[in-house]
């Protein structure tokens, strides 16, 4: 028996509750609270120094690199999930099978770990450089 779409009803209910809460509170705060708009109150930093320049200054490419690395290792972790779900079953089957499966995953991890070691040795994650 597979999961049916109806089994996901709790998720949908939760989603609707979350979105509903946000929408409701936003409407409520907008209509309930008093509004006094002055120029000073609409400043970005009401009680700081006056803001200068553009909010959209280009950020360092290093953030982007970290994001790329995140996505790559995200994909790796996704591959581990179905393996991990089955692993206890393989262990219960026989030690030889479990060992083989463990080695297979180890090879996969080793390949990505090599890449990771390379990235670290290259000093790409070194922030101050």
């Amino acid at each position: 028996m597979q999961y049916q779409p109806s089994d996901y009803l709790p998720i949908i209910v939760q989603l609707i509750a979350a979105i509903g809460f946000i929408v409701a509170t936003m409407i409520a705060t907008h209509s309930l609270g008093p509004k006094r708009n002055t120029k000073l109150k609409n400043e970005v930093f009401e009680c700081g120094i006056e803001s200068v320049g553009d909010a959209r200054t280009p950020i360092s490419v290093k953030y982007f690199l970290v994001a790329i690395l995140f996505v790559l290792f995200d994909v790796e972790v996704i591959f581990m999930y179905p393996w991990a779900v089955n692993f206890i079953h393989w262990v219960n089957t026989s030690a030889a099978v479990a060992k083989e499966m463990f080695l297979e995953m180890l090879v996969f991890m080793a390949l990505l770990l090599t890449g990771f070691v390379y990235v670290i040795k290259k000093g790409i994650l070194h922030w101050e450089k």
Partner: peptide
């Protein structure tokens, strides 16, 4: 696929 991911990793780095 591990190799593919590693190539992408090296390349993007």
């Amino acid at each position: 696929t591990g190799i593919l991911l590693m190539v992408a990793l090296i390349g993007s780095a």
